[in-house]
């Protein structure tokens, strides 16, 4: 299960703040608590060796720039995860010799992840519910884009769908998602 989520936001914010003051012990604990999740995130986009490098880069950046973390603006895990995603995506974009990725089947997409008794976070269900309100192709494309960092062009190619349609589906999907989450 997702152990990393058991660390609460205040603890993470405290560890990041201590890291900003140069506290190596706090930095180590931060790494122990969060690195496996970040590695999991990177492994959805990159080969193992590259994912490893990205995780290392992320923590080098955390050590140097922990003072830029603002607990009023983001939760610690969000800040770390998005930094990892962004670096992984940048790495993906730099890789022109990318391995061919699997075809996206828009019709028979897997059912949304079954409700997990351990996942009590309300917002997990809320986002899932909102994604479920989207038509299947939009949902599949949005999930694939998020987890794999695929561009519009790549999504169009992999799903054998015209680029304009993919853009429409995703953009309309994002609008609906936003409206649903703000309800």
């Amino acid at each position: 299960m997702a152990e990393a989520e058991t660390v609460n936001d205040d603890v993470l914010a405290g560890l990041i703040a201590a890291t900003a003051r140069g506290d190596a012990n706090a930095f180590e604990r931060l790494y122990r608590e969060t690195s496996a999740k970040l590695f999991g995130v990177c492994l959805r986009m990159l080969a193992r060796a590259e994912a490893e490098e990205v995780v290392q880069d992320v923590y080098v950046a955390v050590w140097r720039k922990a003072d830029q973390f603002d607990p009023d603006r983001a939760r610690g895990m969000t800040w770390l995860s998005m930094m990892a995603r962004n670096r992984a995506i940048d790495r993906l974009r730099a890789n022109r010799s990318e391995v061919a990725r699997s075809v996206i089947a828009l019709e028979d997409e897997p059912a949304a992840a079954a409700d997990d008794a351990a996942a009590t976070m309300q917002d997990v269900h809320r986002l899932d519910d909102c994604l479920d309100e989207l038509e299947a192709p939009r949902r599949t494309l949005i999930r694939t884009a998020f987890f794999e960092g695929a561009t519009y062009e790549e999504l169009a190619q992999r799903s054998a769908t015209p680029l304009g349609t993919v853009k429409s589906w995703i953009r309309r999907g994002l609008l609906k998602l936003k409206a649903c989450l703000e309800r």
Partner: peptide, 26 residues
């Protein structure tokens, strides 16, 4: 938007990072 999408990451299983990464960081 980051916070909106964040719950999706709950679907991602943590994977232990090889020890050499921490060795570099240390």
């Amino acid at each position: 938007w980051e916070e909106r999408f964040m719950p999706l990451l709950a679907d991602i299983e943590p994977v232990a990072v090889p020890a050499r990464v921490w060795e570099h960081l240390r």
